[in-house]
Every structure is written in structure tokens, then in C-alpha cells.
């Protein structure tokens, strides 16, 4: 998802009786549904895991500004321009809340940026795909924000207090984003001209499988899940969430008269779910390891913004320091 394949530092899940008394007390708090707060004791591995997960989520929000930012200057009406700009601004806000949540675990925003820039930390694979037409603004809002919601709604109950609270604020905005994206799709796919319908189907074709990949590898190949689930920093398995997403999205696509690019897609009366084709996991591994269509450009865009902003940040800090010194001198 926004945090895919977060490497777990634990050595697999220990049984309660094998834990040290401190670890055991901690696990029992989580099992009782208590929230862990920044000043509470926590195992090192829990802290490290959370930093990776929240950091990766935060990076996804700000790298995620880029594919949609790509269309702000080309939005077709003043209303769409304002809506898209407000949406991408929300994503910056999400990044900010999440970096703040990560800071409560003892890592600074600058350190996290540094790790993003040098490639030590990742962001969601989805943002390494290009946005090629205006219909992509519809597809991204509908599918990408939609998939994000699937993952983040349960995270509102995650064990770490600041993370859970950030999720509550973020989820409200994400559902608004999804509706906005879906509305773009309605305008184009249902009510639009032949050109617009073609754009909508094309966008759907390109984003369907990448959206499915957002939930991470299949459970049978997902090595990092068990410990995270025990700690309640991951609430559902990848496949559970993916299935839920497919089940909700397919009827929406039908309503839009869009064809899901999967010939094997079929409703299974027995299970009550849609059967669907797995995405190409080799492509996923390529994207994750740096070979997606936009990895290099996305990262470079972030690094360039950071580099070119350094004089501003330094100037502001220097001014703040001088002002503080004047105040001391005056006292």
C-alpha cells in the first residue's frame, strides 16, 4: 500500500510466554487495544518498524504530489484547477502530519528526507507511473486514493497513538479525493465525448494493475506481515485488502461503462467475491527496485526541489536566529 513491503526487524513473532517480562507487558497492552504513546516504553524493533512504515507513508504523500501536480497547470476549467490544486495540497498536508508522527519516535523530518533522497527509504510503487491525460486525474483519485482508503481506514485503529490520530484526519480527506476523482471519471467515461471515453478507458487500463499492486505482494510471499499484525501496525493482510478493493471497484467501473482490463475477472457465487488476475509481480519488483517508468524522474524532482530550496530554508533560519539574538541583547 502506501507502505509496501516494510521490512520487519523482528525475527518472527514470539509467543507471549517466550517474551521478556517487558516485551510481554507491551504486547499485552496492544492485545487489550491500548494505544502506545510517544513517552511509553516500546521495543526497539517496534519503534524501528514504525519509523519505516510511517516514513514510507509520508514519502508516498509528498512524492504522490508529483504525478497529479503534473496536471495542475493544464486543468480544463477553473473549478477543476482549484479542486486538483486543493487535493495535491492536502497530500502535502498528509505528508506533514505523518512526518510529525514519525518525529515523535525520535527521527527528524530532515533525516527522513535524507533517507528518501539517498534511496534508503522507499515510497509507494504507484507514484512511479506517469500521468498522461486528464483522465489520469480521474483514475488516480478514484483508484489510488480509493486503494489508500482501504488500507488507511483500518489504520485509524493502529496501536501507535500519533499514527492512528494522523490517519483519522487523513482518511476524511482521502474519501473526498476519491469522490472528486470518480466525478472526473463520470464526466468523461459516462457523459463525455468519444475522445473523452477513450481517454478514460486508457487511463483505467494503465492504472488498474498498478492500483492492485499498491496492497503489496500476495500473502503467501509477504514475509513482513506477521510481526506487524501482532503489533497492530498492520491491520489486514495484503490479499484481504486487495480483494475488498476489487469487490468495491468492479461495480463502480461497470457503472462508468468501463471495461476492467482482466479477461478472467468473474463474480464467484460461492465465495461472494470477484475472482481476478494477479498483477504482474515481476513488474512490481522492477518498480520497487528502481526500474519503474518514473522512478528516476520522481526522485530527481524531489531532490531538485530540496536542493533549490536550501537557500530559502537557510535564509529563514538565519533570520530567525538573528531575531532571537536581538531579543536576548535587548533584555
Amino acid at each position: 500500500m502506501y507502505a509496501q513491503m516494510v521490512k520487519s526487524t523482528g525475527k518472527g513473532v514470539q509467543a507471549l510466554e517466550d517474551m521478556s517480562p517487558q516485551d510481554r507487558a507491551f504486547q499485552e497492552r496492544i492485545d487489550r487495544g491500548e494505544k502506545i504513546e510517544p513517552k511509553d516504553w516500546m521495543p526497539d524493533a517496534y519503534r524501528k518498524n514504525l519509523i519505516r512504515q510511517i516514513g514510507q507513508h509520508a514519502h508516498s504523500e509528498i512524492v504522490g504530489q508529483l504525478p497529479e501536480g503534473n496536471w495542475i497547470t493544464r486543468a480544463p476549467t477553473l473549478e477543476r484547477k482549484a479542486n486538483l490544486l486543493a487535493k495535491v495540497q492536502d497530500e502535502a498536508g498528509h505528508g506533514l502530519y505523518l512526518y510529525c508522527a514519525a518525529e515523535t519516535l525520535g527521527v527528524s523530518r530532515d533525516e527522513l528526507f535524507e533517507m528518501l533522497h539517498c534511496g534508503k527509504m522507499k515510497y509507494s510503487s504507484i507514484f512511479n507511473y506517469p500521468t498522461l491525460t486528464w483522465a489520469d486525474m480521474g483514475a488516480v483519485g478514484w483508484l489510488v486514493d480509493g486503494a489508500a482508503i482501504m488500507n488507511q481506514v483500518p489504520l485509524q485503529r493502529t496501536s501507535y497513538g500519533p499514527y492512528a490520530r494522523a490517519m483519522v484526519r487523513i482518511c476524511k480527506e482521502e474519501s473526498f479525493h476519491q469522490r472528486q476523482g470518480y466525478h472526473i471519471m463520470i464526466k468523461m467515461a459516462k457523459e463525455g465525448t468519444a475522445d473523452q471515453k477513450r481517454m478514460a478507458q486508457d487511463a483505467f487500463n494503465r492504472f488498474w494493475y498498478p492500483a492492485l499492486m499498491m496492497f503489496g505482494p500476495s500473502d503467501k510471499d509477504s514475509v513482513h506481515s506477521a510481526q506487524s499484525m501482532a503489533w497492530k501496525i498492520k491491520m489486514n493482510t495484503n490479499d484481504e485488502l486487495r480483494q475488498k478493493f476489487v469487490d468495491e471497484t468492479v461495480p463502480q467501473a461497470k457503472f462508468l461503462s468501463l471495461t476492467v482490463p482482466d479477461e478472467r475477472l468473474m463474480f464467484n457465487e460461492e465465495t461472494g467475491h470477484y475472482d481476478y488476475s494477479e498483477p504482474d509481480w515481476n513488474e512490481f519488483m522492477d518498480v520497487i527496485s528502481g526500474n519503474g517508468p518514473c522512478n528516476t524522474d520522481r526522485l530527481e524532482a524531489r531532490k531538485k526541489a530540496w536542493r533549490e530550496g536550501s537557500w530559502v530554508r537557510e535564509g529563514m533560519m538565519a533570520h530567525a536566529d538573528k531575531k532571537a539574538q536581538c531579543k536576548i541583547a535587548a533584555e
Binding site: I62, Q65, L66, G69, I72, T73, K81, L85, V88, Q89, A92, G93, G95, L96, Y99, R109, A301, K304, A305, E308, G309, S310, V312, R313
Partner: peptide, 15 residues
């Protein structure tokens, strides 16, 4: 001004 969205010198400035 909208051209700055996503590439501001700091998140606060971006917003």
C-alpha cells in the same frame, strides 16, 4: 503560483 505545488522549498511553503 500553482506551478510551485509539490516542489516548494519546504512543506510549509508548499502548502
Amino acid at each position: 503560483t500553482s506551478q510551485w505545488c509539490g516542489v516548494g522549498p519546504a512543506l510549509e511553503e508548499d502548502i
